[in-house]
């Protein structure tokens, strides 16, 4: 909780990206090409957010970047096998 209040603007931007992406997926639920683009775009945005956030927080390490990439890859693998 302390993390969220300390970096409120960071988290708001992340939640904003994810909410917009979710609405986009609902609106274009029968357009698989657009859905794929939204999911890939969101995964890239998520990793970028992680890198920028940790860079600003001065705790950016390779293992952290890999962690974000792995979580994004896991989400992508699941989503793309269903879209």
């Amino acid at each position: 909780m302390k993390q969220i209040t300390k970096h409120l603007s960071h988290y708001l931007s992340l939640f904003g990206i994810l909410i917009v992406a979710t609405f986009g997926l609902i609106i274009f639920k029968y357009d698989k090409t657009l859905q794929t683009s939204i999911v890939v775009g969101t995964a890239i945005s998520y990793v970028s957010w992680g890198i920028i956030h940790h860079y600003l927080h001065r705790d950016l390490h390779l293992s952290v970047v890999i962690e974000y990439i792995l979580i994004a890859s896991l989400g992508l693998t699941m989503a793309l096998s269903l879209i």
């Binding site: 993390q3 957010w49 956030h53 979580i71 989400g75």
Partner: peptide, 28 residues
Amino acid sequence: RIGGRTIAHIAFLGMIMAIILIARAGRV
């Protein structure tokens, strides 16, 4: 500890869960 933000991971996986729930089989 040094690591990613767990809250961010939960939020991202939450969106993936929404995709899984929205996804419908079928092609036209």
